[in-house]
């Protein structure tokens, strides 16, 4: 599943590259050093294009991959709302909120984890499309905080060659925090204010409270604990809401 996600992600990233490169060939870059002999219409056009570089807009959307993943897996369901806002030339503030329910049924454990997770961080654009800087490749970082509820319904007690199932443990509230380096791309869909934002998020668990010294089996938003590291492929559909139009 993880390998498949990475392959899809790389294909999407390459597709973005081809789309952006083709877009660049079609649009002639505006040059501010050209003599001022143009008519008013063309001057306005150049100014409009330049002003786009400093457009401030709020991008709000949902992770479209989360319900698809839940539909297929049926053991990790939830949703995620994403938003970002350009605070400086190449810096975008990102805030994301999600909910997840994980049914853990592996290695003779039976447990359910349910809760919200809150992410805050930034994206730094590595490359922006010359006429539409909202289309970009970016690197980012997120800090995530997840208060969640865990209920262990059965746990394994291992003896030699035999596994006994222990009874359940009481339902408990736990907290986890992790950091997410992000690499992604955002591209406009059909010249509309709707964008496809694909990213690969790597999770590094910082701390997590424990029930009776037990490592977390799974954490909402983080997934099943894989040696305190995990990764996620996110495919968000975002809508651009212009807020400030700051001209040069």
């Amino acid at each position: 599943m993880i390998t498949c996600s990475i392959q899809i992600f790389i294909i999407v990233l390459l597709s973005f590259g081809i789309a952006c490169a083709q877009g660049e060939k079609l649009v002639t870059k505006p040059s501010i050093q050209e003599p001022v002999t143009m008519d008013t219409t063309s001057t306005n056009s150049i100014q409009d294009q330049l002003s786009m570089i400093y457009d401030h807009a709020l991008y709000v959307g949902i992770d479209a991959f989360a319900p698809i993943r839940g539909w297929f897996a049926r053991k990790n369901t939830g949703y995620q709302v994403v938003s970002s806002f350009r605070v400086y030339k190449k810096i975008h503030l990102a805030v994301e909120i999600g909910q997840s329910t994980i049914v853990y049924d592996r290695l003779d454990w039976k447990a359910t984890m349910q809760g919200l997770y809150y992410k805050v961080g930034f994206n730094w654009s590595l490359y922006e499309h010359s006429t539409d800087p909202d289309q970009m490749y970016y690197l980012g970082l997120r800090y995530t905080f997840s208060p969640y509820q865990q209920e262990v319904k059965a746990y394994p007690v291992r003896s030699f060659g035999v596994v006994y199932t222990g009874g359940g443990l009481p339902k408990i509230h736990l907290i986890a925090q992790w950091l997410e380096p992000v690499i992604g791309a955002r591209v406009a869909l059909f010249n509309t204010p709707i964008y496809l934002d694909a990213s690969l998020n790597l999770f590094f668990l910082i701390t997590s409270t424990k029930q009776g010294g037990m490592d977390p089996l799974a954490i909402p938003g983080f997934g099943e604990d894989l040696d305190k590291k995990n990764l996620e492929f996110k495919w968000a559909i975002v809508y651009k809401i212009p807020i400030v139009n700051k001209r040069r």
């Binding site: 993880i2 990475i6 790389i10 990233l13 590259g17 590595l126 380096p181 790597l202 894989l226």
Partner: peptide, 22 residues
């Protein structure tokens, strides 16, 4: 642009190498 893309993909591969230890 493609240099940038290659750097991104290299970074992904490096990060992948440190993940996914079941």
């Amino acid at each position: 642009f493609y240099k940038c893309l290659l750097r991104c993909l290299s970074l992904i591969l490096v990060m992948m190498n440190s993940s996914c230890e079941e």
